[in-house]
Design a protein around this nucleic acid. Structure first.
Length: 771
DNA sequence: TGTGGATGCCTTTTT
DNA sequence: GGCATCCACA
């Protein structure tokens, strides 16, 4: 047990306390993973059987990494028997084992979010509701959050609160949709992501002997990132831990940033109320960052009221102050960052992979990419379309799904006419409504078209039968043929990518590549499983049961290349970089305008906390006066969160353009923007170093009016009659007193009160009309 | 049954 | 501005 020497006092205490429930509050960079892995290793060396340890994480990556590290400590022959994985992976495994008890078969499909939405959309259509009002995405998130809080469809329709809220939102029939959705999932032998947790709860609730079995078998339960658990997860863990009460949860309330996915920070805040005899361990030494960064982050998070107080400290050097830079435009911000990266990389003994650029929203990546490309700085961008979301991959996998589970309605709808085989929407609708009428799956209808009186012409019937028979041939081989061979045969026979194969365009080539990649992955999966588990045949069903729970982070390949990392702050949680740039530190962006309640605002602040604490040595923050977003230029003030950091940890840079490639930069700008730049300068609209954050009396957001292009008849006349009140970026609120036409340009005289009467060209002035 | 032009919409997303 | 989606048309 030499490895215990590597722990500090509080880590050691947390690791060796195994008699009852414990809560480990692990500050950023405090060695959380180390505590978890060592604790499990410690249990194993104490003679606890690996199969009686359940360790739950939120990502496959975290689980894999932890298993690997435990394996290094105690041997891989031991670590492989641990029940270690994501909530979803572990409980889908248990649900497959017990499927028959809850009306499923063990090869049930897992619907991903787009399957769920598409099914909901069909239901809305079938109910003859307007999908502009009943937006599938919105309905899905309501259902999802109901499930996360363990309300079944029956609970939902019975609950007057839901109905009241749905009526208020003008979608009173949401409950009905939920009920139908649940039925259809069941009929399709499919579970969505939320079902994996909901159905587990139902299983445990309705089958006490099953619960008892798992309670008995899991002598120790450990949960990582406990601050991100939702109610469904909380209850599963609580139920499972009831017998032994040997549960250890690890997390950091200050890093709870997933409430929008149902995570409930109360789970961690109130852990000690749930488990009265729980021990609390606080890991407060930060091994990652310099003193300055840690203190700055502390001073920020201190402004939150809901938290477990802790004293995070660093023993590393004082380090550099956090650099805060203000710029005029988002382009300039991006070029500044690119320049700084180039400089750091040359002078500071940093490689690109030590550097990350973090932002609040994915859309901010574009301008950043552009700047990095111009400077020839290699980067890797996270987020965006995942491998498994790509059309060609979804198509191929849908065939696999249909072969494995022919009741999978979403898969069937996706491939029944892809590639085109003369089965159109009309036919699919007939199939679907016939199936609904008889309460069976579409597949059942296909198998007995006569019995169900499917009203199609002979040609269509033949084509349907051909499709059905093709799938049946594959299905007959599902248990005997190797996953890769069957997959390969499906891809070839169905011709899913035949059109791409015949096409030489870059897009088609990449589609073919992606499918090859998928086949390769199946091959590897099958080989590995054969080797590791001495399985005789690895079937496509085996592969599918894992693949639906995989994400892009599990398929990252170029991790070792020297590139700058670009990602959202959410995606950066758990990572660390010597140097971190946080861009777009502006009101209306960060905090997100969607954060309305104090609780949501605190979550945004935690998100900023997460961003800062990613940095080991250097942290650069920037904000821009203007930003091009959603097709228009918006003006913004510095983020309120900057004021939450103690001034003494920051250094403000009053940056004017440091852009080297001025031409490239200005080419992006038309006269209009030039004028705005000058206005800013004239108005000294820059934070002086002494008073960096004095907010200018300026409206937060200004919507540009549609620019009047030459050919168009100006509409401003109708929009801007005399007497209209408008808002201007610099002058504030004013009243239109006169409109004229000069050289074909609309001009308005506007009285801005104290600021005087201004004559503005509407083409240039960004005015917001106040109603 | 496939395409194109108009329309609408935009946060974060470990599973 | 960019993307997905939808309806109108050939």
């Amino acid at each position: 047990m030499d490895f215990l020497n590597e722990l500090n006092k509080s880590q050691l205490e947390a690791v060796t306390y195994t008699d009852g429930p414990s809560l480990v509050i692990a500050g950023a960079g405090s060695g959380k993973t180390r505590v978890l892995t060592y604790k499990i290793a410690y249990l194993l060396t104490q003679g606890v059987s690996p199969a009686s340890i359940l360790a739950l994480t939120f990502t496959n990556k975290a689980a894999r990494e932890m298993r690997r590290r435990i394996g290094e400590l105690v041997g891989f022959q031991t670590s492989r028997y641990l029940w270690m994985g994501t909530f979803h992976a572990i409980f889908s495994r248990i649900l497959r084992n017990e499927a028959s008890l809850i009306g499923y078969t063990k090869d049930f499909t897992i619907y991903d979010t787009s399957d769920s939405k598409s099914l909901i959309k069909s239901i809305i259509k079938e109910m003859k509701l307007d999908d502009k009002i009943y937006k599938p995405g919105n309905i899905h998130s309501r259902i999802s959050s109901a499930k996360n809080n363990l309300y079944t469809a029956q609970d939902y329709v019975k609950n007057p609160d839901f109905l009241k809220s749905d009526i208020q939102s003008r979608i009173p029939r949401t409950g009905e949709i939920y009920a139908i959705y649940a039925n259809r999932c069941k009929q399709a032998n499919a579970m969505d992501f939320d079902d994996l947790l909901l159905q587990t709860n139902i299983l445990f609730r309705d089958h006490p002997q099953i619960l008892a079995k798992y309670q008995h078998s899991f002598a120790y339960i450990l949960v990582d990132e406990y601050q991100d658990t939702n109610f469904a997860q909380y209850l599963i863990v609580k139920k499972l831990a009831e017998r032994h009460e040997r549960i250890c949860v690890v997390g950091d309330d200050a890093q709870s940033i997933y409430s929008f996915r149902g995570a409930n920070i109360d789970n961690i805040l109130k852990f000690q109320q749930t488990y009265r005899n729980a021990r609390l361990f606080k890991l407060e030494q930060n091994y990652r960052s310099t003193k300055n960064i840690v203190k700055a982050a502390n001073s920020l998070i201190d402004k939150n009221s809901e938290q477990i107080r802790k004293n995070i400290f660093s023993e590393k050097e004082e380090g550099n102050l956090i650099q805060v830079t203000s710029v005029l435009t988002d382009f300039e911000e991006a070029f500044n960052v690119a320049n700084s990266i180039a400089r750091l990389q040359k002078t500071e003994n940093l490689t690109y992979s030590h550097i990350a650029v973090l932002y609040r929203t994915n859309s901010q990546s574009r301008v950043m990419e552009e700047a990095l490309r111009k400077q020839n700085i290699p980067y890797r961008i996270y987020g965006g379309l995942s491998f498994y979301q790509r059309k060609e991959i979804k198509d191929v996998i849908s065939y696999f799904r249909l072969v494995t589970n022919s009741n999978d309605e979403e898969a069937l709808k996706r491939v029944i006419n892809y590639p085109a085989r003369g089965i159109g929407d009309v036919t699919v609708d007939k199939l679907s409504s016939t199936a609904q009428l008889h309460g069976v799956s579409i597949w059942s209808v296909l198998h007995d078209m006569l019995k169900y009186n499917l009203n199609v012409n002979a040609g269509t019937a033949t084509r349907l039968a051909q499709f059905r028979d093709m799938i049946d041939v594959f299905a007959a081989q599902i248990d005997t043929l190797d996953a890769y061979e069957l997959a390969d045969s499906i891809v070839k026979t169905t011709g899913v990518i035949a059109d791409a194969m015949n096409d030489r365009s870059a897009e088609s080539l990449s589609r073919v590549d992606n499918v090859q990649e998928l086949l390769k992955a199946i091959h590897e999966f099958s080989e590995n499983k054969r080797k590791e588990e001495h399985a005789e045949t690895v079937t496509l069903t085996d592969f599918l049961s894992e693949v639906s729970l995989l994400t892009d982070q599990d398929t990252e390949k170029d991790e070792n290349e020297d590139k700058v990392t670009l990602m959202t702050i959410h995606a950066a949680k758990g990572l660390e970089f010597r140097c971190v740039f946080i861009v777009g530190m502006e009101e209306q962006l960060f905090p997100s305008p969607y954060a309305e309640t104090p609780r949501e605002m605190e979550e945004e602040r935690r998100l900023f906390y997460v961003a800062i604490t990613r940095a080991e040595e250097n942290c650069f923050i920037s904000y821009s006066k203007s930003r091009f977003r959603n097709g228009q230029t918006n003006f913004a003030n510095p983020s309120r969160f900057l004021k939450d950091i103690d001034r003494k940890f920051l250094e403000y840079n009053d940056e004017v353009s440091t852009t080297t490639d001025k031409n490239a930069f200005f080419n992006r700008w038309d006269d209009e923007v030039e004028i705005e730049r000058n206005r800013f300068r004239q108005n000294s609209f820059r934070p002086a170093s002494s008073e960096p954050l004095k907010e200018p009396a300026q409206p937060r957001k200004l919507k540009k009016m549609s620019p009047s292009t030459e050919s168009e008849t100006p509409v401003e006349n109708t929009n801007l009659p005399v007497g209209t009140f408008v808002k201007h970026g610099i002058f504030g609120i004013g009243k239109v007193i006169k409109t004229t036409l000069a050289d074909g340009n609309e001009k308005a005289e506007i009285d801005f009160g104290e600021k005087g009467v201004k004559s503005l060209l509407l083409k240039f002035a960004r005015l917001e009309i106040l109603k």
